[in-house]
């Protein structure tokens, strides 16, 4: 299939309605679960869902727009748009090669997402924000600097730590959710083959407990 045809199929009307909802989920879910006080933010779960259901390019658009629209809430959000785009792309390609088909593969996808996100976020954090983005992680960066680490390494270490757990859980939850959808429903999406090839869906007991 030619790339332009692929894009045309990926951006179906269903995808076009999915993306705004995914953007809103990216923006809202973090606040929803903030009362649980867990060290995760789930701010890319919508992008990962789009990546599974509609492919990397739609997911990249979801990431980009999430951070542009988030700029209305926090003006520094758009600076991290490259991270969101890369997360969408990587998740989309992982889905394409079948990495959303078993829980351990999904975990690997999550690890990969966390690493790539940190790789892209680090230069932005260092060059644009001087290595600091407020909040508790800045204390940790200060500590690493004080013990003699260089700025880039310190920021990367902290970013990896905060991202990996979040992205692994994000990927796992996104996968569980897609499994909950009926086959008829999944087939509405342009990349249905990413999940529908999955024959041995885990039983509920494995997923919930």
């Amino acid at each position: 299939m030619r790339f332009s045809e692929r894009l045309k199929r990926d951006f179906s009307t269903t995808t076009l309605t999915l993306i705004p909802l995914a953007i809103v989920l990216n923006l809202v879910l973090g606040q929803t679960i903030s009362l649980l006080k867990l060290p995760i933010f789930l701010d890319s779960i919508g992008s990962v869902l789009v990546a599974i259901l509609s492919g990397p390019w739609a997911a990249a658009v979801t990431g980009l727009l999430t951070n542009l629209i988030g700029g209305v809430i926090n003006p520094f959000f758009p600076a991290f748009a490259p991270v969101a785009i890369v997360v969408g792309l990587v998740a989309g390609f992982c889905a394409k090669v079948g990495w959303f088909r078993a829980w351990w593969k999904v975990t690997l996808t999550g690890l990969l997402l966390g690493l790539t996100a940190a790789l892209v976020a680090t230069p932005i954090r260092v060059l644009v924000f001087g290595g600091v983005t407020g909040s508790g992680s800045s204390f940790f960066i200060a500590y690493l600097l004080a013990t003699g680490s260089a700025m880039v390494q310190s920021v990367f270490a902290v970013t990896v730590l905060t991202n990996v757990l979040d992205k692994v859980i994000t990927a796992l939850i996104a996968w569980v959710i897609v499994l909950r959808l009926s086959r008829r429903y999944i087939s509405r999406f342009p990349r249905a083959e990413n999940v529908l090839a999955l024959e041995n869906a885990p039983t509920n007991e494995e997923v919930v407990r």
Partner: peptide, 8 residues
Amino acid sequence: LFCGTVAA
């Protein structure tokens, strides 16, 4: 509703 089976 969020579980994989009605019973769960």
